[in-house]
């Protein structure tokens, strides 16, 4: 069979590290994989507002409150960057959003864990956003132009998120024994789930090979995870936190920290809907969508009137 010249040209451009733009020809699988990934990523930003939103009214100081408000607002913005970047692939935001509300779309498993104490807000900024930055720094070099550009913008803003988290953790660890205990407990709960954020090892991942071939992914899940481990273990020790892993040891030969086995069953369980907060998260999104109906109707009425005026004037 003759190779499709359009497809050959597409892979030639990938090989040359050229950016693929919406008007270019690309295989249907490329479009499908990008829509899946970008919409999941957008949903994660939107659902990700909920665990932190939980603490806005109870932030311990005004400084913490304005920081957290700005961070949650950024996440709404990141969701919008990503939805509009995904719209360049010919799917509407409405369609993607309905998939989320109807429970057909996935989002990062990490947002199905609860925020039980104020220390969890520190852990989310330091660990969850720290992990997200590693992933997104890679995606900022992905082959699809609109996705890569959205990532560049997001990465710049995520650094503030990570630093406000580190300030919270640092403050708690320099505080009273109760504050230190609260931080350690939160660390114990978030450490393992954040290691799962990079996904299952590549040989077990159904999408990794294709995503790598399309240059959407440029590093393996395990490679990114190791980078995260090395950075976070060093930071945890500097904070005075104990990493909740009896098998953790430093490998002198490679210069890397080695961890014990990850409980992937927990990951699958949470991903498939049985995490502590899956039901609550989706219900909160559905409620927000229902509560916002009047805003959408008012905007539509406003635009309808504007177009009528424009037509009468013409």
């Amino acid at each position: 069979m003759e190779p499709d010249p359009k497809e050959a040209e597409f892979f030639r451009r990938l090989d040359a590290d050229e950016s693929i733009e919406p008007k270019d020809w690309f295989p249907e699988r490329y479009r499908k994989q990008l829509i899946r990934m970008m919409s999941q990523h957008a949903h994660s930003e939107i659902v990700g507002m909920l665990p932190e939103g939980n603490w806005i009214t109870r932030a311990p100081t005004f400084r913490r409150k304005i920081g957290l408000l700005a961070k949650v607002q950024d996440e709404a913005g990141h969701g919008l960057y990503l939805y509009s970047a995904a719209e360049t692939l010919g799917i509407s935001r409405d369609e993607m959003y309905q998939q989320l509300l109807q429970g057909q779309a996935k989002y990062s498993h990490i947002f199905n864990y609860p925020t039980l104490s104020w220390a969890d807000i520190g852990m989310i900024g330091w660990l969850v956003d720290g992990a997200a930055i590693i992933n997104q720094t890679m995606l900022a070099k992905c082959s699809y132009g609109p996705y890569a550009r959205a990532m560049v913008r997001i990465c710049k803003e995520e650094n503030f998120h990570k630093k406000q988290g580190m300030e919270i953790v640092g403050t708690l660890m320099a505080g009273t024994p109760e504050q230190r205990r609260m931080a350690q407990e939160a660390f114990d709960r978030w450490w393992w789930p954040t290691l799962m954020m990079f996904g299952v090892p590549d040989q077990a991942s159904p999408n990794s090979a294709e995503l790598t071939r399309f240059k959407i992914k440029r590093k393996s899940n395990d490679e990114l995870r190791q980078r995260y481990i090395d950075m976070k273990v060093a930071q945890a020790h500097a904070f005075g936190l104990v990493v909740p892993d009896p098998d953790l040891k430093f490998d002198d030969a490679t210069g890397h920290w080695r961890i014990g086995p990850i409980d992937w069953n927990e990951f699958y369980r949470v991903l498939q809907g049985a995490g502590p907060c899956n039901r609550e998260r989706l219900e909160a999104r559905r409620q927000a969508y229902a509560d916002g109906a009047w805003v959408r109707e008012a905007a539509a009425a406003f635009e309808k009137k504007r177009r009528q005026k424009e037509e009468t004037a013409a």
């Binding site: 919008l80 939805y83 509009s84 719209e87 913008r153 905007a299 539509a300 635009e303 504007r306």
Partner: peptide
């Protein structure tokens, strides 16, 4: 810089 979806 990017795009937005809006009514008008």
């Amino acid at each position: 810089v990017g795009s937005v979806r809006a009514a008008g």
